[in-house]
């Protein structure tokens, strides 16, 4: 196991960063012929066989986990797809497959280049809307979260890998780096694709019906947060916002795991979207890249 290595944005002394280099046991499950999902207990991703070698999606969330991912695949990796720019998704290609081709949406590639994080290697091939890649088709459905976040469809296995979109529960925390203006339309665009199974970026594998339910849940939180703000619930008072959205949503959505713990901060975050107007040119109806 490494005791030092790439550290992303962390500035703590090396002796405090041992957690970055732990290599946990990973759970690997076959989703269909030539397609697997891999799970480290926190994050989930997929890898697939192609005519040119293994294609790995993302890197898992730390250098150590990326190395464990590489070991679990047990074969050379020819291509790594970055689903989005976040370091906990695609930050450690230096440990996973430093010589592989790296494919990402052009907005993701731009942020990765600008960031220059030590383990997140620059993208070598970009696309803008849709791109075939071996057994998969990469889709940019519009803005969801992060920069250039894509979903990947595996038509033969009828599987959609869609990290940082819908979860099989309500554990969204503060919806970090979400683009509230477009998320509903973007997620509904994904529902136009032909799939039965969804691999989210975290937690368990979902059915198509669970994905659709998750979209409806997020839309319901959005509406409840707007109503709270519209009805003069003080958007900066957490307890008041939490009480309002809980009351509005518990009957229909209270069965979702994590609802009680997360619904307050979700509503609070979305209310601030309507308070401030959305963040940057990305989170507008025009959905333009940031200057």
């Amino acid at each position: 196991m490494l005791t030092d290595g790439p550290r992303g944005r962390f500035t703590l002394p090396a002796e405090r960063l041992a957690f970055l280099y732990e290599e946990p046991e990973l759970q690997v499950d076959e989703l269909g012929e030539g397609l697997w999902t891999i799970y480290d207990g926190q994050y989930r991703t997929v890898f697939a066989d192609s005519d040119d070698g293994v294609i790995a999606w993302d890197t898992l969330s730390t250098p150590g986990r990326a190395r464990a991912y590489r070991a679990a695949i047990e074969r050379p990796i020819s291509t790594v797809v970055y689903s989005n720019d976040h370091l906990d998704r695609s930050g450690w290609c230096s440990e996973l497959a430093p010589d592989a081709e790296r494919v990402a949406h052009e907005w993701c590639a731009r942020v990765v280049a600008l960031r220059g994080a030590d383990g997140q290697l620059p993208v070598t091939r970009t696309f803008s809307a849709r791109e075939g890649l071996g057994p998969a088709v990469l889709h940019f459905p519009g803005l969801t979260s992060a920069s250039g976040n894509i979903a990947t469809l595996f038509p033969r296995q009828r599987v959609l890998y869609a990290p940082e979109t819908v979860l099989p529960n309500a554990r969204y925390s503060m919806l970090p780096d979400w683009h509230i203006t477009a998320f509903s339309a973007s997620l509904r665009a994904l529902l136009e694709l032909d799939f039965d199974t969804v691999v989210p970026g975290r937690y368990g594998v979902m059915t198509r019906e669970q994905f659709a339910e998750g979209v409806a849940f997020l839309e319901a939180v959005d509406a409840a947060a707007q109503h709270a703000f519209a009805e003069s619930v003080a958007v900066w008072l957490f307890d008041a916002m939490e009480a309002y959205v809980k009351e509005q949503l518990a009957e229909t959505w209270g069965h979702l795991d994590g609802f009680d713990e997360h619904i307050g901060i979700m509503g609070f975050r979305i209310a601030h979207h309507y308070l401030t107007g959305g963040w940057s040119t990305e989170d507008t109806p025009a959905a333009l890249p940031q200057a």
Partner: peptide, 15 residues
């Protein structure tokens, strides 16, 4: 919490 995500994600967007 916001700063935690800064380090987990590496900052948000171009800005």
């Amino acid at each position: 919490l916001r700063y935690v995500y800064e380090f987990v994600h590496g900052g948000w967007g171009v800005e």
